[in-house]
Design a protein around this nucleic acid. Structure first.
Ligand code: FES
Ligand code: FES
Lengths: 143, 143
DNA sequence: AGCATACCCGAGTAAAATTGTCAATTATTT
DNA sequence: AAATAATTGACAATTTTACTCGGGTATGCT
């Protein structure tokens, strides 16, 4: 039951993006340096984040990425969904119609319920929440 | 964010064990046939379940495994713990003192909170709950 | 135009984790 | 003694993860 580092990186990168963007695009190079994530790996992640409509890209010099919507409207579960990490704990529930065995598997309800809790918790946290928390932590360190 | 099949098998096997034991030991061979899990793999799992004090073994002919305590006192999270699947979503929190970076990582609280929800949910379900559910499902099918 | 920046994209790859199997042994009952 | 069934450690196949590489394309600047 591990969250992949891909998902962890994606969340960190999004917080960092939001934290350092004053309305202008932030380049992956900057995020890469600040978060110590390889540039080429970040590129891979941001392609998916863009396809998930969480960020917009600006090409050319001075370009980079922008949030596609206000941070308050971006939930952590959406970030993880975008990088294609499933939040459902068992494979059989990944198909779009859910798993077929409602009344066969004894453990169906366990995994289904667990998946719902995970989704519920991660959707209750927004990128704005995390960014504010990060700002508070930075202040503490500097004081 | 997947529950390993090892953990899934362990839960299924425990339910099956409880379901078919009328106080007498159940052999892994029986469970293997009923649940279509390879015998040798089951052996591996039950060594861990025994070490986790969830089952007792009885050797020799007519032997097998018994629950070490009443099903009502065995929680799903204990089964998963026994087969050594971590319920904490990130590696840094696995050490016994938890992760060190309380006030460094921005995402610390996300993973910590998530881990707590998972634990909470899985500890709220007992083996007795699942066994009763299984019995209901069997009746439905037969009627 | 030419150059530098920075996103875009698919393929490939090495390491790690997962998911098992196999062979040999020990304990117990009949 | 013979059959049953747990016990153990080593080992092998497969899959997933966590990346890198090599080339593209769009844009702005001089
Ligand atoms: S097939 Fe999905 S829980 Fe049974
Ligand atoms: S080191 Fe564990 S969340 Fe930061």
């Amino acid at each position: 039951m591990r969250m992949s580092t891909k998902a962890q990186y994606a969340v960190r990168a999004m917080v960092n993006l939001n934290l350092h963007s004053g309305g202008s695009p932030v380049s992956l190079r900057d995020i890469s340096l600040r978060e110590s994530i390889s540039l080429t790996y970040l590129e891979q992640l941001f392609v998916k984040l863009r396809r998930g409509k969480l960020v917009k890209s600006v090409r050319g010099p001075g370009g980079g990425y922008l949030l596609a919507r206000p941070a308050r409207d971006i939930q952590v579960d959406e970030i993880i969904d975008s990088v294609e990490e499933s939040l459902v704990p068992v494979a059989c529930m990944d198909q779009k119609h859910g798993c077929l065995c409602d009344d066969q598997c004894v453990t169906h309800n366990v995994w289904h319920g667990l998946g719902e809790r995970i989704r519920q918790f991660l959707s209750s946290i927004t990128l704005a929440d995390l960014t504010e928390e990060a700002q508070r932590k930075i202040k503490q360190v500097n004081s």
